[in-house]
């Protein structure tokens, strides 16, 4: 795992994580503090990136917004991965009725457009991070199930799985110690997609006012509110957009790199 971070994408991701999680420990301006007199103020010593329409510190808001985007998307992806991969592996390994049942349920979830499903859940259970994480997770569970299931199907027929069976290994051991490591590659790729997609979906929901609740900062909400003043204050729109783009690109690059590292054929393995 150490090796994964000793690479350009790893270092970039560490930099972003440090920015989002360590910087708020320093005395930054309060991201919620309103200063109406200084609305739309340009960069100054106290406010390095300037102030927004309520005079709140832009840099501080960007950093907090990125942190919540990472926490919410990462959390949602992790939750979806745990649930989805478990269902997928069991379906692929045990087969039979459990396979048919779980895959059909996933098909039903896949029938709903992700944004619609998320909006439905957010309207039913109220907006806010506490609903956002489970909702995003629910949206992305089927993709993990599908990938895990398909990968298990190819790996389970390999002779080394038969060999472990003949050694007298139990089903859980075969699943977790033999099959899981061998399907990690595609799962990491899927994880990278899902983190990125939930970053985008989260900002989309927040843009629509169904995600992070104001006044808490979120990239989507910042883009939404800067839209009105785009002609006069383009910077207020560009800054959160750029933060979003950089976050997505770095996450993508890192997950791609992770897959490379986890393949034993490239170097010494994980």
């Amino acid at each position: 795992m150490k090796k994964a971070f000793k690479s350009p994408p790893g270092i970039l991701l560490l930099a972003i994580l440090a920015l989002a999680f360590i910087l708020p420990l320093f005395p930054l301006p309060d991201p919620l503090a309103i200063d109406v007199d200084a609305r739309y103020a340009g960069p100054s010593a106290a406010h390095l990136l300037g102030q927004d329409e309520y005079g709140r510190d832009l840099m501080s808001r960007l950093i907090h917004a990125m942190r919540s985007a990472i926490v919410i998307s990462g959390g949602a992806a992790l939750l979806a991965a745990i649930i989805g991969v478990t269902i997928g592996i069991v379906a692929g390994y045990v087969r039979g009725i459990s396979e048919a049942l779980s895959l059909r349920v996933m098909d039903v979830i896949l029938c709903f457009p992700p944004l619609l499903l998320a909006m439905l859940a957010a309207t039913l259970y109220g907006a806010g991070p506490k609903t956002l994480v489970p909702v995003l997770a629910l949206v992305f569970v089927p993709s993990f199930t599908r990938v895990a299931h398909a990968s298990v199907m190819t790996v389970r027929g390999q002779e080394y799985v038969d060999a472990v069976k003949l050694m007298g290994a139990s089903a859980p051991r075969i699943i977790f110690r033999t099959i899981l490591p061998n399907i990690a590659g595609p799962l990491f790729v899927q994880f990278s997609f899902v983190v990125v997609m939930s970053v985008v979906l989260e900002s989309g929901l927040s843009y629509l006012g169904l995600g992070v609740l104001p006044p808490e900062p979120s990239l989507g909400m910042m883009i939404g509110s800067a839209r009105a003043t785009f002609a006069d204050q383009p910077w207020l729109l560009f800054a959160p957009c750029m933060a979003l783009v950089v976050l997505v690109l770095v996450l993508n690059a890192f997950c791609d790199h992770l897959r490379h590292v986890f393949d034993p054929r490239n170097g010494s393995g994980a």
Partner: peptide, 24 residues
Amino acid sequence: VSAAERAHDIQMIFQDPYASLNPR
């Protein structure tokens, strides 16, 4: 005989030496 005990009695060598070892 349980699967675990059977392992002491009978083992197998497979055809494809590229597929019968766990690559990880």
